[in-house]
């Protein structure tokens, strides 16, 4: 498993392909699930033109590694890769990549969702948005309702 916290843009699909070619055993995984979080141009009712992402070097990596290990303890994970940016981020750029390789899709889906959700809850990052009204710290993340029998809320007709 690998955790990278870096400044500057990245191509999540290239990073996933490169990591798979370098690190995954050939022929053992039947599923790779990737989550890519990108920057919206709106949040909490305001247009957002740019974002700065602060982190706590050392603590951030440690807590993402812990979350990946917890996922590997719960599901059959062959490997996992997390790349998260810090610093200045522009609209539509990727912020975070979570990629999980497993023999079967259910384990890959569940482990990927676990990693991104607990990363958002525990990894010490803070977003500061630039809006027409000035800069503001984001006070909370949107919630993931999780998977249940109803699934996530349907979009309104």
């Amino acid at each position: 498993m690998k955790v990278i916290v870096q400044e500057g843009p990245f191509d999540p699909y290239q990073v996933t392909r490169d990591y798979e070619a370098q690190s995954l055993p050939v022929g053992k995984h039947g599923a790779v699930v990737t989550f890519v979080g990108t920057m919206r141009d709106f949040n909490d009712g305001h247009n957002v033109s740019a974002m700065f992402l602060e982190h706590y070097p050392g603590m951030t990596e440690r807590h993402i590694e812990d979350v990946c290990q917890e996922a590997a303890d719960k599901w059959d994970v062959i490997d996992a890769l997390v790349l998260h940016r810090h610093g200045d981020i522009s609209v539509s750029e990727p912020i975070v990549l979570v990629a999980v390789w497993s023999a079967h899709r259910a384990h890959a889906f569940d482990a990927c969702r676990y990693i991104i959700n607990y990363l958002k809850e525990r990894a010490p990052f803070w977003k500061r948005e630039s809006t027409a009204q000035g800069q503001r710290w984001v006070e909370h993340n949107t919630e993931d309702p999780g998977v249940n029998s109803q699934g996530t809320k349907q979009k309104s007709a």
Binding site: I95, L119, K120, A123, P124, F125, W126, K127, H140
Partner: peptide, 25 residues
């Protein structure tokens, strides 16, 4: 670099951090 609460007793050389709820991802 581990989460704790305000009742935690400190030792010489500890690094203590105070910050708001996290908003990464």
């Amino acid at each position: 670099m581990e989460y704790t609460d305000a009742s935690r007793a400190l030792k010489n050389g500890d690094e203590v951090a105070f910050f708001p709820p996290v908003t990464g991802g």
